[in-house]
């Protein structure tokens, strides 16, 4: 039985890996990114496709959660109307720290083709965004790439979230900084 058992003590030393707390914590955070099941428009169809079996987010440890209390990532997938902006912000506020935001598609990034009175011109007006994902709509591969970019970003961050700078919601540089996060 167990012919393949490795004798750690005799071959490669004890099974000990040396690392820093930052790396260990970020390894855990980045490999279990749980996004909120939250779709706004047609980008949400692509987001669902990314989660389904063909593109399979689960293999990256990305599992959609139905409650903001259990989610780490908010994927704003689609056009955010002004009527709905209040609720999107409320969902963001309900998520527990640490939390990250992906703005998916042209509409979420800048308002896109909806240059009208009823659409929020870029979700970064109300929510600090970590990854801007271009496309109309971005393909599932693009969303996967954005997820991997977010993982990369998280791995570079400090485990202490207070040390990490969030995007400020100001449009003019060098002026006031909004403390809205």
């Amino acid at each position: 039985m167990a012919q393949h058992q490795v004798n750690y003590a005799s071959t490669a030393g004890l099974p000990i890996a040396l690392t820093s707390v930052d790396k260990l914590v970020n390894w855990g955070r980045s490999n279990s990114l749980w996004p909120l099941t939250y779709g706004l428009a047609c980008c949400a169809i692509e987001m669902m496709a990314s989660g389904a079996s063909r593109y399979d987010f689960d293999r990256m440890g990305t599992i959609f959660r139905a409650s903001p209390r259990q989610a780490d990532v908010m994927i704003l997938a689609g056009t955010l109307s002004k009527k709905h902006s209040e609720f999107a912000r409320r969902l963001y506020d309900q998520m527990t720290e640490p939390k990250w935001v992906i703005s998916m598609g042209s509409c979420a990034n800048t308002g896109g083709m909806f240059n009208t009175y009823a659409t929020v011109q870029g979700v970064d007006r109300i929510i600090p965004v970590d990854i801007y994902l271009p496309g109309c709509a971005p393909r599932p591969e693009t969303l996967q790439y954005a997820m991997m970019m977010l993982q990369k970003k998280i791995r570079r961050e400090s485990a202490d979230m207070k040390k990490n700078t969030k995007q400020d919601l100001t449009t003019q540089t060098g002026k006031k900084r909004a403390r809205l996060i």
């Binding site: 800048t110 870029g122 007006r125 919601l169 100001t170 449009t171 006031k176 900084r177 909004a178 809205l180």
Partner: peptide, 13 residues
């Protein structure tokens, strides 16, 4: 009071 901080909408793509 946050109007000044967040700034006007950018309608120019």
């Amino acid at each position: 009071e946050y109007r000044d901080i967040i700034g006007p909408e950018n309608r120019d793509p």
